[in-house]
């Protein structure tokens, strides 16, 4: 009797492990590419917000800035090493004439401004989302993330992880080209 109870207790690590494994396995078994998290917002307009400009506290933006042309919304932060790796490619895209809006996510304004001055600023507009409110509405999972938004302000695609030549050529560019 006592022994049985002991075995049950010793089974606890096993059970915990199996539960953990199931959680790790589901995204893989679903066949979903983990870097392509589906967002409930795909096909939806950008949620309403009011955010400050990163350089100028007095300047404020709302969701209207996403209307009028197709663009990229890039979520980044200085605490995120991957964003650092990604930054060069964003500069390259910006040089090709893409309209990119940057959203600085849960970050420090001073550090962020320094980053942009130093690494070159690829963003037409830089939003400062210190509290992560817009990030929450967008379901941001971490930085970096990039959203493709069409000229009506509708989210068309969401990419989690860094943007690079390969990702752009393989997936994003075709969606971007098709967008209006």
């Amino acid at each position: 009797m006592l022994n049985k109870r002991r075995i049950l207790m010793l089974l606890v690590p096993f059970v915990i492990f199996i539960i953990g494994a199931v959680f790790l396995a589901t995204p893989l078994l679903k066949g979903s590419d983990p870097s392509k998290l589906e967002s409930a917002l795909i096909g939806q307009p950008i949620p309403q917000f009011t955010l400050q400009d990163i350089f100028d506290q007095d300047k404020q933006y709302n969701a209207d800035i996403f209307k009028g042309q197709k663009m990229l919304l890039n979520v980044w932060a200085t605490w995120c090493p991957t964003c650092y790796a990604e930054h060069t490619y964003l500069n390259k895209l910006a040089n090709q004439g893409l309209y990119i809006v940057g959203m600085n996510y849960k970050d420090n304004r001073k550090k962020a401004i320094r980053w942009l001055n130093e690494l070159h600023n690829p963003y037409q507009i830089s939003l400062f989302d210190e509290s992560g409110l817009l990030g929450l509405d967008l379901g941001v999972y971490g930085a970096p993330e990039t959203f493709l938004i069409d000229s009506h302000g509708i989210i068309r695609y969401r990419h989690v992880g860094d943007l690079n030549e390969q990702v752009w050529n393989d997936k994003l560019s075709s969606i971007y080209e098709e967008m209006q």
């Binding site: 790790l24 893989l28 590419d33 983990p34 090493p81 991957t82 790796a85 989690v160 992880g161 860094d162």
Partner: peptide
Amino acid sequence: RSGVLVSVHA
């Protein structure tokens, strides 16, 4: 290796 978590190392 699986890319379950996105990171600079992946």
